[in-house]
Simulated assay, not measured.
Amino acid sequence: MNNKLSFLFLPPQDDVIRVWHQRLVAFPGPFKFHMAENDADALELIEHADAAYGEVTPELLSRASKLRWLQAPYAAPPEGFFPDFLQKHSMVLTNFRGIYSDHIAVHVMAYILGFARGLHYYLPRQFKHEWNPEPLDTGVVALTGKTVLIVGMGGIGSELARLCATFGLRVFGVDARRTDPVPHVERIAPAGNLDQSLPDADFVVVTVPLTPATRMMFTRPRFRAMKPSAFFINVGRGGTTSIADLIEALNAGEVAGAALDVFEDEPLRPEHPIWRTPNLFITPHMASYGPDLDERRFAIIRDNCDRFASGRPLHNVVDKVQGF
């Protein structure tokens, strides 16, 4: 009699997932690992699955009588990943959060340092072959004592706070759930206090996932609430920010500059007016790039397999209603 637990990789498959499958099969343990090559395979195999990796449809879930754990293939699942049928299911859902924290935090520091040294002025002038320094003692920001407001104090926010402290920056946080002390963060306010926190910030950094509560979190009134000398940075999800409102705020001088790695619609069209907006850094949704990401994902799956089999709490459990 086969008493092994069943773990199913749902389609679509790629070479990375195939390697994960081979490595997991080679481990002795209580799981038997399966690959669903297509939708028909998935419908058949999910009937016996105790755990799965990927996205499930209502039809798949209706057949998943044994499913108790689903590993989402994202760190912060996109909006709509948690429909009602998934929210109501008793399964535990986990994600890959935390694997990008160091890379994204460094990316944000690159933005902050770029603004601090006036690179938002000088890079465009470089491309036009212009030797045109700003007047003496202007066009730069002395970071010591300046304030960074991090909206979303998860793994990225915590690592960013550590980096900020090394440059003498003060750090405040805003978070929907977190209330425990975080090293290098002076205070964490609830999400409802965002408007009261914005006027204190010299840099506003958005790291939150896209949920109904965060969609269009930043529009013109919130840009106007910031200091005219402050900089806005978004490395979370594009749908948290109105790009049209940000363009207007930048052109009106209501904020000093902005750095964006994420956008409402991607890829960003060549004719989009954001490209012609001053005092702006744009990167193409690559703040998370760095070595060993696939290995970090695999480590989470491997560790949670051990935890699931032994009845221990899983890492990276997601609140299916809130979406993170």
Rank of each mutant, 00 (worst) to 15 (best):
D245R: 06
D245K: 02
D245V: 04
D245G: 04
D245P: 01
I247Y: 02
I247H: 06
I247K: 00
E248P: 00
E248S: 04
E248C: 05
E248F: 01
A249H: 02
A249Q: 03
L250I: 12
L250W: 03
N251L: 10
N251H: 14
A252K: 07
G253P: 06
G253D: 06
G253K: 06
E254W: 13
E254S: 07
V255T: 07
V255H: 06
A256W: 01
A256S: 13
A256G: 02
G257N: 06
G257T: 08
A258D: 06
A258C: 08
A258M: 07
A259L: 10
A259N: 02
L260S: 02
L260I: 10
L260D: 00
D261N: 03
D261V: 04
D261M: 01
D261E: 00
D261T: 05
V262Q: 12
V262S: 06
V262C: 12
F263G: 10
F263W: 01
F263I: 03
E264S: 07
D265E: 15
D265S: 14
D265I: 15
D265Q: 14
D265M: 14
E266K: 12
P267F: 10
P267W: 05
P267N: 09
L268N: 01
L268R: 05
L268E: 09
L268W: 00
L268Y: 08
L268S: 05
R269S: 15
R269Y: 00
P270T: 08
P270N: 15
P270R: 12
E271C: 04
E271Y: 09
E271I: 08
H272Q: 04
H272C: 03
P273S: 11
P273G: 09
P273W: 12
P273R: 05
P273A: 15
I274R: 04
W275G: 06
W275Y: 08
W275T: 06
W275K: 09
R276P: 01
T277V: 14
T277G: 10
P278D: 10
P278A: 05
P278Y: 10
P278W: 08
N279Q: 10
N279G: 11
F281E: 04
F281S: 04
F281W: 03
I282Y: 04
I282Q: 06
I282M: 07
T283A: 09
P284I: 10
P284R: 11
P284M: 12
P284N: 13
P284Q: 07
P284D: 12
H285L: 00
H285P: 04
H285R: 02
M286G: 11
A287W: 00
A287L: 05
A287Y: 00
S288A: 15
Y289V: 13
G290Y: 14
G290T: 11
G290A: 12
G290I: 14
P291L: 13
P291S: 12
D292I: 09
D292K: 07
D292C: 05
L293N: 11
L293D: 05
L293M: 11
L293V: 13
D294V: 07
D294S: 15
D294Q: 14
E295K: 03
E295S: 14
R296N: 00
R296V: 01
R296W: 01
R297F: 04
R297D: 03
R297C: 12
F298D: 02
F298A: 01
F298C: 13
F298T: 02
A299Q: 15
A299V: 15
A299Y: 07
A299E: 12
I300F: 03
I300M: 09
